[in-house]
Design a protein around this nucleic acid. Sequence first.
DNA 1: AAGTGGTCTAGACCACAAG
DNA 2: TTGTGGTCTAGACCACTTC
Lengths: 235, 235
Amino acid sequence: MSIKYKDISNRLEEEILQGIYDKGDKLPTEEKLAARHGVSRNTIRKALEILVRKGLIISIQGSGVFLRHATPQGALNLEDFNGLTESFSGQEVTSEVLELKLIRADEKLSLAMGCRLGAPIYFVKRMRRIDGVPYVVEYAYHNQEHIPYLDEKIAAGSIFRYIREELGKEIGYLDREISAAKLGEEDARLLGLQAGDPALISTNRGFLKNGEIFDYSVDIHHYQTTRFLKLSDYR
Amino acid sequence: MSIKYKDISNRLEEEILQGIYDKGDKLPTEEKLAARHGVSRNTIRKALEILVRKGLIISIQGSGVFLRHATPQGALNLEDFNGLTESFSGQEVTSEVLELKLIRADEKLSLAMGCRLGAPIYFVKRMRRIDGVPYVVEYAYHNQEHIPYLDEKIAAGSIFRYIREELGKEIGYLDREISAAKLGEEDARLLGLQAGDPALISTNRGFLKNGEIFDYSVDIHHYQTTRFLKLSDYR
DNA sequence: AAGTGGTCTAGACCACAAG
DNA sequence: TTGTGGTCTAGACCACTTC
């Protein structure tokens, strides 16, 4: 389990973030990268494609591959989903578990999660801060059939990392629906805002590689501190 | 100018939307699709990849390619930006041009658009409705060096289509930053809401294939009618 | 004319699912 | 064991930019 284009993409990303290519703002040609990493040009192109989607580089036909270093600070890249903990490495991400219990899926939940009525589901409510500043209130539902065990200690960290590294499950797809609404009393209090203030909301569904839904969550973001980023090539 | 994987992707998309594959929810194997369209398997995979990104299908290794038909109604797919006119085909999209003038780029604008200070820029303010319901107030800036001419008639239609089809320019990348804020008086009035109500905001930058910015815009969306969708495979 | 990214092929082998 | 998608290769030719 070591995929060349992913490895190379990660290596190039590190090099870019370290500023190795900053002079001239231009990466080596695809051919040179292929030779340097000992792979075919197609494999290099798959690696570069990921970085294009992440917004680190931009390819111009006939001209070359250029750095973008335009990524706004502090915005959450929708393409880059490892959870907050990884997205804000360098800053202190804390998660306060406000509630954690095992419930049964009612009709609405079983529909949202594609599970049977009455299936056991972990419900986790968390308050997450970045460098101490309120960032998001999360309401998450995890299917116990896929995540057999969860406690406060795990929930206080990165649940995504737990799933990948501890449970060894592979995440396949992640869907997000982004909307705005007025804050309710409770969420407003948690975020240090007023009821009726705007909220930036992300409603998420996580799929394992085999297509099963392991996670359904609603994230109520602080509207003054969260921005989402979507950088895309045109198709 | 006819790219096989794009053509095939469009054809498959039409077939999916027509419901041709609904029985069994499964597409033919990649090999069969390759044979049917007379192309290599890699080309079919590129075509399918686009549909995965658009959220129409989901690939499961070892199992097959399945329909999703889970796309929420009325949400704007962030992967699928041909502008409102194309995204809401079937419904009536109207654009009322509230203002259109040629201005000079000030410092802030020249920075946002990557153009020189004093460059001529079209400013367009539009109110867009879907089936008569207020949907978004758009503030758009177009670099005249790339879009030499613009009038009310053009602005009342799809500016993106105008650029592609009339000017023959190729769009390369599109960046969007999504946030929430409180509505100001003017925008609230236009959207039929109250000042201080939430707004769902998309701030956009459009790049031509050669990397130049042709468009910078801020879209103030009605928070009760707009949702954005981001369906992604995990990398 | 030369350099560089974009499209496409034909085929090999691997990883996972289903019978 | 067989079917199916995932990764990878080596090479060809095209489209666009740069010189």
